[in-house]
Design a protein around this nucleic acid. Structure first.
Length: 572
DNA sequence: ACTCCCTGCGCC
DNA sequence: AAAGGGCGCAGGGAGT
């Protein structure tokens, strides 16, 4: 089958350039940071051409604070490099244009995805900035290949400030991405602010939890007491023969010696096994996980002065979700959320968008029947009443299978029911899957574009053999990519929605309220108790605004649960 | 001693 | 019950 890499999956038209995330146009100020904390700035016209002389700011903070009174859009290379410096100096800004994130989005839409590291290096070189240590080797024609289709030609000695202006101009090449770029850039501001403020984290509570689960902190190289006791019990159950519960291969071997063949040592596999070692083994795994991933050394490394400060990586996931670097910030175990406690006199407003992805699918596809189901706060319950004899678990499996491409178990028949009742919604994700299988790109609501499959994939799926049959590995590769694109449109559009939410929310919060955590579809705001009601209202308003920005006057409901709590574990 | 892959599991 | 999407991280173990 021929592939048409540049043929795109249909996108909804009609997105507007100006938006409450801040007018794209208006006052623009390019800013370059110098090594010693000083900086240089220059006003730009709407089209990116310089609107005044380049200025040197010996005190960056006061210069930026002063210029910020006009609410400009700051144009800079990389928010994650520049903004932390400003925040540390006590300066908050309203809006920005992040050249790095923007270029990644533009290249993606043009079918020219680049590895993040490689792009960082290329941009740094073009902008005359120090390249990150792990950037790839320079390419001679970086400037020419980055900013197509009209290449930017920069003389080798171009001043960084002038380079900002030129690159910004080149980045006006796809006006349809305006809202996405604004939302992505605003997300980068949020991410830096979250790291700056930090997530409140009570070391004493964390230590108490560890004591309960593992016993006292062991000497280095030693197992915690309670884990050792379980390890002994497991070995006893296996007849006393040497085995290591931390090594999956050792577990499989131990069961084999006991006459039980298990394909792996995964929890759900072992759960089904009838053997006295299973219970202590599962217990061991659960506790050991906390020790290894969120134990004392995690606490030593990541929590300081009562705050957990991971780095968030905006756009770190191809779908547009954030990633994180350090401290497994997006995988905080539920148990450990007990350590997330508001400061005295403050509270945490915990908010999540309930069942975001199916609602996104309803709005994307415009399936009237699914939109009606979205009228219920519990979408799966409503779906169950509509199509699955009130059986909520089945309704949920059916919906998840549609969005993830699941086929196993009862997913197939359940999906068939869903397809019959909601042909438009299911058709939407199945079109996306077909596009992926054929090597075409798909897009999210705001235009973020899926990568083109690798050359190896193209090769593998590119043709039939002499008998006209495609190989099973070829079909499998195609199906795998189809599952990816199927999910991409939903997960990615949900990420669009949350990016818009974050961008709007940070402008609506009371001055002392800080966004301190964000995880795919939930946010935590740390604020004085007196501000709690205002924060709840701001979150609700931001949710409505995000919905309007993505989908206009849709009737799809996106309920936000927002509740003030003292402790994160008390939310939900 | 170091890197790299695999396994397994935490989160959405 | 089991296996579909996206991640980060740590330990084990193999390879260098």
């Amino acid at each position: 089958m021929a592939t048409h890499a540049l043929q795109t999956f249909p996108v909804q038209p009609g997105l507007k350039l100006s938006d409450p995330l801040g007018t794209i146009w208006g006052v623009l100020v390019a800013l370059v940071l110098d090594a010693d904390g000083a900086g240089r700035w220059q006003k730009l016209h709407d089209d990116g051409t310089p609107a005044g002389p380049a200025m040197v700011a010996s005190s960056l903070a006061s210069a930026v604070a002063s210029l910020e009174r006009a609410r400009p859009r700051w144009v800079w290379a990389d928010t994650s490099e520049v903004y932390p410096v400003l925040l540390a100096a006590g300066v908050r800004v309203d809006r920005c244009w992040d050249l790095h994130l923007t270029e990644a989005l533009l290249l993606g839409v043009e079918g020219r995805h680049r590895e993040p590291k490689e792009l960082a290096g290329a941009l740094a070189r073009v902008l005359g900035l120090p390249a990150p240590a792990d950037a790839g080797p320079p390419k001679k024609d970086d400037a020419l290949t980055l900013f197509g289709p009209e290449p930017v030609v920069l003389p080798g000695d171009t001043d960084p400030l002038a380079a900002l202006s030129l690159v910004f101009r080149a980045q006006q090449r796809n006006p349809a991405l305006g809202l996405l770029i604004a939302a992505e850039s605003a997300s980068a501001l949020v991410a830096a602010e979250m790291t700056f403020h930090g997530l409140p984290w009570r070391e004493d509570v964390h230590n108490r939890l560890l004591q309960e689960v593992l016993g006292p902190r062991p000497a280095p190289g030693q197992r915690p007491k309670l884990l050792q006791a379980l390890a002994d019990e497991i070995q006893e159950a296996f007849g006393g023969r040497e085995m290591n519960p931390d090594a999956p291969a050792s577990i499989v071997k131990a069961f084999a010696r006991a006459g039980i063949e298990v394909p792996s040592a995964r929890r759900w596999v072992l759960k089904k096994v009838d053997h006295p070692a299973v219970k202590p083994l599962l217990d061991y795994k659960e506790r050991a996980r906390l020790w290894v991933a969120h134990g004392w050394s995690w606490l030593d490394t990541w929590v300081e002065d009562g705050r957990f400060r991971p780095d968030y990586v905006v756009g770190g996931v191809v779908t547009g979700r954030w990633a994180s670097r350090g401290g497994a910030a997006l995988q905080i175990p539920r148990l450990m959320r007990q350590a997330v406690i508001a400061d005295d006199g403050w509270c945490l407003v915990a908010a999540d968008a309930s069942q975001l992805e199916p609602r996104i699918l309803a709005a994307l596809s415009g399936d009237e029947r699914l939109i009606e189901v979205c009228g219920d706060d519990d979408l799966y319950a409503a779906l169950a009443r509509d199509s699955f004899k009130g059986e909520r678990p089945r309704a949920k499996i059916a919906m998840l299978s549609a969005m993830y491409g699941g086929t196993s178990g009862e997913a197939g028949p359940l999906l068939a029911v869903l397809r019959k009742r909601f042909p438009i919604a299911v058709g939407y994700v199945e079109d996306a899957a077909r596009a992926g299988e054929q090597g075409r790109m798909v897009r999210t609501r705001l235009g973020r574009t899926s990568p083109t499959p690798s050359a190896a994939w193209q090769e593998l799926t590119g043709g039939a053999d002499e008998s006209g049959e495609s190989s099973s590995s070829s079909r499998q590769a195609a199906r795998n990519w189809g599952r990816f694109t199927r999910n991409f449109v939903v997960q990615g559009s949900a990420a669009d929605w949350t990016a818009a939410l974050l961008g709007v929310l940070r402008t609506k919060l009371p001055a002392d309220a800080h966004l301190v955590f964000f995880q795919h579809d939930e946010v935590l705001v740390h604020c004085p108790r007196a501000d709690a009601d205002a924060v709840v209202e701001a979150i609700a308003a931001a949710g409505r605004e995000a919905t309007r920005l993505l989908f206009g006057e849709t009737s799809v409901r996106f309920p936000m649960n927002a509740v003030p709590v003292t402790c994160y574990a008390d939310a939900k």
